[in-house]
Design a binder for these strands. Structure first.
Lengths: 231, 231
DNA sequence: TTAGTTTGCGTCAGATTAACGCAAACAAAT
DNA sequence: ATTTGTTTGCGTTAATCTGACGCAAACTAA
């Protein structure tokens, strides 16, 4: 058995859609390019896969370079193959998306690269390559996944209030959800557990803090969150 | 802007999980290899991606070669990156799965390659490369997708009875489903439409034939099929 | 002190689910 | 031809779930 001979293979890249949530705003990490192609424009952060790297290694490399942190929730999204997606030549992109709580990055804020920026999901500029499509696919995936899997707790602090979780869902789904029904569904689901604690510095009836239930591995759960139509 | 220089890139392959359904049996198209690696063993059909091909082109090429037919339901599954997945060297696999009604192939039966065979999903042999993992991922995807999307009609004839559809679901999900509740759910969903016709050669009260409702494009529907616990 | 907001808990009519009954139309066995 | 079992279509029902929204205690802002 002989190894592959020198096929000409398409270049193979990883592109990342890194979601961050802060102050009722879902944003994505964009890269301001300072070289061709798309010099001066925005793209998603990405890198070519090295021969000895696994996808997750390449992801880590990108995240470390641009965010100074690489242990994030990471999920493979889709592989993109438009022959014209990169003007430099044939390149396949394996896209991943990641979830970060930008708050947790603040300690390492100085390590965030100068050429990246958080951009509000609702105000996406034009993106180079086929990155607009990748972004749209990622947002779609996040929106549908959050309905049946406790993704998104990755976007909040370790402890959070019901209101914070509610706002996160409204923000990601870009719709309004009935507060009381949401509360009931989430608590019934046992996705989260009450800690019995309240945030420091607040008085008696401050909102209760919850944590994600790490023991829970239910897979086929359906939140089925109602839209708030009236009010 | 210069084109890519000669990076050494991993080889890039497409592997296919082709599902076929016949006589209450869900099967997958396997390839009997007659060269190394895994000579004499089973693998999924696959091929390397040519520089000018899109994924779907490579899929078509494989399907035409092995089945003599290439217009099937096709969906990208996942991309696999284990550095050890191919003993010949680094190779990435972009896996797709396809659905065929083997009945529709019969006319072109002679064109089916001699080195492939339909194998019952429940009796999968050892597979070369990481193809067992790819197969498992595909089956999982099919099982979850069938619950919220009218995939699977691709596996039946143009017209089919409620019983045939019911059996297909039981077979794919590998469980028993209450016939009467299944019927109600499916009819309420409007995934299928009654034709008012009965299969030829049968008498008055032969089972009614249905067709897939092609106008239906509902996306967030939940079949929520109950398991039949008693009886 | 008053007026609004946030948070937690509750109510309730209507829809949905899961389990299963029943009979007409057929098929197979005697 | 009659009996017996199976297939197919259509119902029923109790328990549960959904979605809309009321209410008051604890807080905040004016």
């Amino acid at each position: 058995m002989k190894p592959f001979h020198s096929y000409r293979n398409p270049a193979l890249a990883i592109d990342l859609v890194v979601f961050g949530y802060n102050a009722k705003e879902l944003s994505v990490l964009l890269l301001k390019r300072n070289e061709e192609p798309f010099k001066g424009g925005w793209t998603l952060p990405g890198a070519f896969i090295q021969m000895d790297e696994r996808f997750s290694d390449t992801c880590s490399r990108i995240l470390r370079t641009k965010l100074g942190m690489d242990k994030l929730y990471l999920e493979q999204l889709y592989s993109f193959d438009d022959p014209a997606r990169d003007p430099r030549g044939r390149a396949i992109s394996v896209a991943y998306y990641a979830l970060v709580n930008p708050h947790k990055l603040e300690t390492a804020a100085s390590t965030m690269a100068g050429d990246v920026e958080w951009v509000d999901c609702r105000k996406m500029p034009q993106l180079g390559f086929d990155h607009k499509q990748i972004f749209k696919t990622a947002l779609q995936r996040l929106r549908s996944k959050i309905l049946y899997f406790p993704v998104g707790f990755e976007l909040l602090d370790e402890q959070f209030t019901m209101t914070e979780l509610h706002e996160l869902y409204e923000c990601i789904l870009d719709t309004s959800l009935d507060r009381r029904n949401f509360r009931r569904k989430i608590l019934d689901s046992e996705y989260i557990l009450p800690t019995g604690m309240k945030r420091e510095g607040l008085q008696n009836r401050a909102p209760e803090l919850y944590v994600f239930n790490k023991k829970l591995k239910r897979n086929n759960f359906q939140l089925n969150i109602p839209l708030s139509k009236g009010q």
